[in-house]
Simulated assay, not measured.
Amino acid sequence: MSETPRIALKAVTKRFGAETAVDAISLDIAAGEFCVLVGTSGCGKSTTLRMINRLIEHSDGEIHIDGQPIREIDPQRLRRRIGYAIQSTGLFPHWTVARNIALVPGLLKWSRARTRERVEELMDLLGLAPSEFADKYPAQLSGGQAQRVGVARALAADPEILLMDEPFGALDPITRESLQEELRRLQGRIRKTIVFVTHDMDEALKLADRLVVMRAGRIVQQGSPDELLAAPADDFVTSLLGGRDRGLKRAALTPVARLMRRVDAGLPVEPAVAPDEDLRLALSVMLWHRVECLAVVDGRGRVCGSLHLSDLMRAGI
């Protein structure tokens, strides 16, 4: 018998008057899965996200959390069980960072000691030293710091589910990439069920366990990033995934360790890549240095293997 999905959408439709925004979609999301919804503007991905915590009520079909229809759960109780992070952060400007993070624990009547411990734990986890940031106000934070506070607030009551709607969309590329890495590292530790909406395909491919492509309110294709890159369902999915650039995008999902050979005696230490870096980066280094072989160097600076262009070609990367 299969395990009950953490989130299940069953033929879910949302209409706004005569317009159908989401059209009879079905989707099961397992506990601990990082599911990313992608598609062009107006495809229904944000509407789908907001139906899960009843910020928008669905018109037809059913949405279940752990097997229970969400319409059987009081909306306020439901939202306190589900973390929610958005692009604008939604922080209260006249509240300190610590008070913003403590919002939901306060609504749940946690003790002061428990709340303070949880706030400090999350600030440490997200690289916000409590001694430096707890008493600051949102206007005193950079965009990346404010976004970290927004994520910390969404996680404060330790929800099983985290909904994220374009959370890094307003950030500059360097800060955005840093927070993507932070979220990947965080998910490796906390294993929440995350539903994440983005229009940035590189972001989606980097973060997703499962990628769900939507078009005109319907699900066109779903699967792992590698599955979609290897076999897109149609021209629309191919275009969304980058068209002829798909080979490089697929290389970005593959660590050097997967194709490296074990230690080659006498191999120069430079140019080099690390085992956990991706093949797209490795290919860029090869092109820049005009070489067909790279040293692979571990965290101690020791050569632990080699990466050859011929092996990338044979692997179809």
Rank of each mutant, 00 (worst) to 15 (best):
Ala233Ile: 13
Asp234Ile: 10
Arg176Ala: 06
Ile174Thr: 08
Ala204Gly: 06
Phe168Gln: 02
Arg185Leu: 15
Ala170Ile: 11
Val151Trp: 02
Pro225Val: 04
Thr198Phe: 03
Leu179Ala: 12
Ala231Asn: 15
Asp165Cys: 02
Gln222Arg: 14
Ser178Gly: 14
Leu155Glu: 01
Asp158Thr: 09
Leu211Tyr: 07
Ala152Glu: 02
Ala230Ser: 15
Leu207Phe: 01
Gln147Glu: 04
Glu182Met: 15
Val213Lys: 05
Ala146Asp: 07
Asp158Gln: 13
Ala170Tyr: 10
Arg210Ala: 01
Met214Trp: 10
Gln140Tyr: 04
Asp235Asn: 14
Asp172Thr: 11
Ile190Thr: 04
Gly144Pro: 01
Pro159Val: 10
Arg185Asn: 13
Leu155Cys: 11
Ala231Gly: 12
Arg184Gln: 15
Met214Asp: 01
Gly144Met: 08
Gln180Phe: 02
Arg189Lys: 15
Glu182Asp: 14
Phe196Leu: 08
Pro167Trp: 00
Arg191Pro: 03
Arg218Glu: 14
Leu183Glu: 00
Arg189His: 11
Ser178Arg: 15
Ile194Cys: 12
Val197Tyr: 07
Asp158His: 09
Asp226Leu: 15
Ala230Ile: 00
Gln180His: 06
Pro159Asn: 12
His199Asp: 06
Ala170Lys: 11
Glu181Met: 14
Gly144Ile: 09
Leu171Gln: 08
Asp200Glu: 11
Asp234Lys: 12
Val197Glu: 03
Arg189Asp: 13
Gln145Lys: 04
Leu186Met: 13
Leu207Cys: 04
Ile190Met: 14
Ile161Leu: 10
Leu186Thr: 01
Gln140Leu: 09
Asp209Gly: 09
Arg184Leu: 15
Ala146Ile: 11
Lys192Leu: 11
Gly143Ser: 10
Phe236Leu: 11
Asp226Cys: 10
Tyr137Ala: 01
Ile194Pro: 06
Asp235Thr: 15
Leu205His: 09
Met164His: 06
Ile194Asn: 08
Glu182His: 03
Met214His: 09
Asp202Ile: 07
Leu211Gln: 03
Ala216Phe: 00
Arg189Pro: 05
Leu183Cys: 01
Phe168Val: 00
Leu211Gly: 01
Thr198Val: 06
Arg184Ala: 14
Met214Thr: 02
Ile161Ser: 04
Ile161Thr: 03
Gly188Glu: 03
Ser142Pro: 10
Ala216Gln: 14
